[in-house]
């Protein structure tokens, strides 16, 4: 058994080396009648679990609308943000609908559809904060919270080089910590921050302002992540995004959550 195990380990290590260099498969022959969708479930209002543990949010509703448009059956799974891309690559799900920005770094790993929304980043501070403006000087020596592995964390590090940026597993944790005063400011999507500030939980804080969305960090807006090579699925999603934009379904979902245009220009 030990033997078998070591053999399997060695064999798989070899396969690893081989697989890393291996060619990409395509999905040309694949029948996409069911699609498994991965999302995070901790990023309100885009995706979150409600009080009864059900997935809700803009991402989830857009995904459902797209699936309906494509006439495929969709099932949802949740996955921590950290492991999102590997889980997609490993086949735990087929499409990643989790408010992920289309960045060059990520495009090296996975493919993206066209954008399905685009909103700027922003910064929020406690109501009694002495930080007057979102400038590098004003945040010198301050502590900023952001979600780990996100474009917002990178942007915070780039825009406020003299601040200490702390990485949180999900958006919910930095919200707890700005409430308790452990961090002086948080950086995230303006919609996420506004939604939180409107709720009771966000009573502690106010929006300090939006931040410039550096295309080098933020890329081309928010897209749906797919495995490289799944070209057929990518075409299906892109056509469906255009279709729901055209037939009013997109606006219907948008109006359920927002009173402004999230698609961007």
């Amino acid at each position: 058994m030990t033997l078998l195990k070591t053999l399997v380990l060695a064999g798989s290590a070899l396969a690893f080396a081989a697989g890393a260099a291996g060619a990409q498969e395509t999905d040309a022959g694949k029948d996409w009648s069911t699609v498994v969708i991965g999302t995070e479930g901790a990023y309100p209002p885009f995706n979150f679990l409600d009080a009864s543990g059900q997935l809700q949010g803009f991402d989830v509703d857009i995904a459902k609308a797209l699936c309906e448009q494509m006439k495929v059956t969709c099932t949802f799974v949740t996955q921590d943000w950290d492991g999102m891309i590997p889980a997609l690559q490993n086949g735990n799900f087929d499409a990643l609908v989790a408010s992920m920005s289309i960045t060059p770094e990520r495009e090296e790993q996975i493919a993206f559809t066209d954008k399905y929304y685009q909103t700027p980043p922003a910064i929020a501070v406690p109501k009694d904060s002495d930080i007057a403006e979102p400038s590098a000087a004003a945040l010198d020596g301050k502590v900023i919270g952001a979600q780990t592995g996100t474009t917002h964390l990178q942007a915070a590090e780039a825009l406020f080089p003299d601040a200490e940026v702390r990485p949180y597993p999900t958006a919910e944790e930095y919200k707890l910590d700005i409430d308790s005063g452990r961090v002086d400011a948080v950086v995230d999507d303006v919609v996420v921050l506004s939604d939180w500030l409107k709720s009771d939980a966000g009573a502690c804080c106010k929006l300090l302002g939006t931040l410039p969305a550096d295309p080098a960090i933020y890329g081309k807006g928010i897209g749906i992540g797919l495995r490289k090579g799944d070209e057929k699925l990518r075409t299906m999603f892109n056509e469906a995004i255009q279709a729901i934009r055209a037939n009013g379904k997109y606006k219907e979902v948008q109006d359920k959550y927002f009173d402004f245009d999230v698609y961007g220009s």
Binding site: G11, S12, A13, A15, F16, A18, G19, A20, G22, E25, G83, P86, Q89, N90, G91, N92
Partner: peptide, 24 residues
């Protein structure tokens, strides 16, 4: 195990022409 072995499994199963395997 979660990121690495899963990657290997996928590479191995694809190499063998099987449907993609993944550890939950």
């Amino acid at each position: 195990v979660y990121f690495g072995i899963n990657g290997l499994l996928k590479a191995a199963s694809e190499g063998a022409g099987l449907p993609a395997l993944a550890l939950s």
